[in-house]
Design a protein around this nucleic acid. Sequence first.
DNA 1: ACGGGGATTTTCT
DNA 2: GAAAATCCCCGTG
Length: 208
Amino acid sequence: MGRSFFRRDPATVARELLGCAMLHCCDGEWLGGWIVETEAYLAEGDPACHAARGRGRSNASMFEPAGTLYVYPIHAKHCVNLVTENAGVGSAVLIRAIEPVWGIDAMMQNRNVSDLRRVTSGPGMICSAMGIDRASDAMDVTRADDWLLTGGHQVADRVTQTPRIGVSRAADLRLRFFVDGNRFVSGLAREHTRPRRDVLGPDKDPSR
DNA sequence: ACGGGGATTTTCT
DNA sequence: GAAAATCCCCGTG
């Protein structure tokens, strides 16, 4: 997957990353799987984007060329993004969930869980399982020999789009994408207990 | 130096 | 469903 793939607008990249493979070579072993959930963060008109208040020390890699990794710490964990658009533009795609495929045993050990659904079904879980931390920040995924992003399944006809998870600002933007029906998508328990959207009506719930 | 918030996860009731 | 755990980062003083 070349740089031109990532140089497009983040919503398109987020949608088309679904079904692609993401792998990180950690201690000589390739870890990763199929991407099944993503979120786009826009350079313009998106106060939830970390680049919204300009370039700082912690978010500098967001302004690097497309295909750069932006890894940031939060709540004693890490989240991994793929930077989009041209250098100098602060936009990216957050990888929220992966279907585990390669190095499953090692990833389960890294996460200290035995349930496969609790290995990479959340942005913090992904980094923990795949051995991703600040050391991976600002790496170029199109050149690094311990990273691999490549095409895989065709899932374009099974993509669902909703508002993003856990963001307080710009909550109306529907920039979360996931593979419909995939059991490794995050927050599935919550979706079940949430009030039925068709009862609330289309104007009340932005996720529809 | 200090304090609060955050693109989270886990556990308990 | 609610709240704790946990820590880095930036904005103030």
